[in-house]
Design a binder for these strands. Sequence first.
DNA 1: CTGCAACTTGCACTCACTGCAAGAATAGCC
DNA 2: GGCTATTCTTGCAGTGAGTGCAAGTTGCAG
Lengths: 201, 201
Amino acid sequence: MPTSAPPSNARERQKRERRLALIEAAQRLVGERGLDDVTVEEISAAAGLSTRTFFNYFDSKDDAVLGIQEIDLDAEVRAQFVSGGPSGRLMTDLEALVAGFLRNAAPNIEQGERAMRLMVSEPRLVQRHIAWHQRVIGELEQLLAERRTARPSPVDDDTIGMVAGLLMRSSALAWARSGYEGDAVAHLPEAVAQLRLLLDD
Amino acid sequence: MPTSAPPSNARERQKRERRLALIEAAQRLVGERGLDDVTVEEISAAAGLSTRTFFNYFDSKDDAVLGIQEIDLDAEVRAQFVSGGPSGRLMTDLEALVAGFLRNAAPNIEQGERAMRLMVSEPRLVQRHIAWHQRVIGELEQLLAERRTARPSPVDDDTIGMVAGLLMRSSALAWARSGYEGDAVAHLPEAVAQLRLLLDD
DNA sequence: CTGCAACTTGCACTCACTGCAAGAATAGCC
DNA sequence: GGCTATTCTTGCAGTGAGTGCAAGTTGCAG
């Protein structure tokens, strides 16, 4: 028996299934008809749930299409960053941290890919995707405050946060550009390289 | 007679006045009661206009609070960037271009400042602000495509666009941090410096 | 003064989203 | 198995954002 995915608990399993069903229905319908020609009612019905229940799972229609969920960073990655690691060089450690977030971003890689594809045709989703970065950055800024005691930096939190957001999106775009090879994390180094290239003119 | 602000045209003047009245009312009411406890109807009434007219001026309540408008880049700045200038080094020229956008971003500096203040208490506004960057970046990506013919670059458009967005927001934040000294453009070099500092670890 | 174009407004409508309270499913305990 | 506390779903009623349309109103040009 695998240790990872299925929590023996029957309640948790159904919760997960319903969540996935909603995302799946949302992505399919929006792909067919467009974001503004699909109602939450239709999505819910397609997933076999009530409209009201939809909003127990997602804050908005857009969130469901993107499959947005809470991000839970690995405790290990978190602890290492806070204590000034793993390398001691901020930019390098930031890259490791972003990788940690990206790894836990999408539980389902196909849904992540479909979300990326839909962003091309529905620009509003890009905005929501970027807005989601904000939440991650909020989490990150707490870590930064803690890390500062261990290892101060002259760079302000805002800049660090924005660069982290940029790297997440840039990785996702590189992933898309590659035709969705591997996962987004695999394209993080490429994102960093592009950024350095620009800064070095 | 000044060449800049007042277009003798009576229609244009009233349009501008109504627009400003709506922003002013929106910012005041939201400052007093919070974003979710103010309706568009109330804002419109406070500005002496109908609800329907409100939506002839702004796409959403949030846009009015931020005073968001179309960005019109100076033709000169635009032409220079497209033809590979002014310096020929991409990062430097990008900075000049961003300065051009920032200069035309807010016609009224006090309203810009109030918008920044409201973003602190209303996080949703930050998201809308960032979403507005997206529109600017859309404009910018066209310019990039044109510039490429004059002066190719190994850096992809997405990265350049995101860095431009980062610089705009970073400048605004530095401006806020300074206690709103001068305008946002004045803090652009600071934003660039912070970014370089981080990249150089 | 007159006809034209731009702008405002009211009206009716759709739909996202929320709070609440009642009902169904499940977990855990004996 | 049966009982109870908890959690989750759902219906209902409501608020308010945002849109299309058609009818007025206002400023503009000749």
